[in-house]
């Protein structure tokens, strides 16, 4: 490696190759991904999130929620993601195309939140989430700083938390979520990707007998039906 030029060219070539292969390669495949238009109900999916939910995702990111919660459901044969009711299908790239900063996450200290608003058998509502954020639980930290404890002036605020027991605020006071808390909850309640894209259906299992030629037929038919 006496030749400096060759050495540096080799270094640059290596990093450029990995950049080109991984980043440009996947960009070529997914960069132009468009919403899927369903002719049946004349709507395209995924829906663009409402502005308040898009702002809420930034709150989710800045608090670092992704350090304990993922937002990706894996294939049916991987882990217990679908058995736990986190989603009826695997997450696909198209789910995230309108997200400013997708929060895939890498750690599951807490449950996956991909389809929080559509969770079976019972999805949390805004009151549940506000209460969890305000008071926390044994498993979840309390983010009191997202709320304002203020005296009631005139009428009680419509968004004030309905708290009971030890959490009840002092008489004449109310706990009101700040705008950040409201955006965050609106975001969490917007998390529901239920539309079944053609690419999100699992491939049919390979037949037990060696007649693989017919293996692909059911998918094609299913896709045809959807359209």
């Amino acid at each position: 490696m006496k030749n400096g030029f060759v050495f540096f060219a080799g270094l640059f070539g290596s990093i450029a190759l990995s950049w080109g292969g991984l980043v440009l390669g996947s960009h070529k495949q997914l960069g132009g991904l468009a919403p899927f238009f369903d002719e049946g109900d004349s709507t395209s999916y995924p829906n663009r999130p409402p502005g308040v939910a898009a702002r809420g995702q930034l709150v989710y990111a800045d608090l670092g929620c992704a350090s304990c919660h993922t937002q990706q459901v894996r294939r049916p044969d991987v882990g217990a993601d679908q058995a736990r009711g986190w989603g009826e299908r695997q997450s696909v790239a198209r789910d995230y195309i309108f997200q400013l900063r997708p929060q895939l996450g890498a750690s599951r200290i807490g449950p996956d939140l991909t389809n929080l608003a559509g969770r079976k058998p019972s999805a949390p509502d805004a009151d549940d989430l506000m209460k969890l954020l305000y008071a926390g639980s044994e498993l979840h930290p309390a983010y009191g700083f997202l709320f304002e404890n203020r005296p009631i002036v005139g009428e009680r605020s419509a968004v004030a938390l309905k708290l009971t027991g030890a959490l009840t605020p002092a008489p004449g006071r109310e706990i009101v979520p700040t705008e950040r808390a409201q955006s965050l909850v609106a975001y969490l309640l917007s998390l529901n990707n239920t539309y079944d894209y053609p690419e999100s259906r699992p491939l049919p299992k390979a037949p037990a007998k060696p007649d693989g030629a017919h293996g692909a037929a059911p998918t094609a038919k299913k896709e045809g039906e959807k359209k």
Partner: peptide, 26 residues
């Protein structure tokens, strides 16, 4: 090189959707 490429594609002109996770992983 690494930091400037990641900055360009994640911070200044973010790529779309899950591609961000790909760049961040790289």
């Amino acid at each position: 090189w690494l930091l400037s490429a990641a900055q360009a594609t994640l911070i200044w002109t973010p790529v779309r959707g899950v591609l961000q996770a790909v760049v961040a992983g790289w």
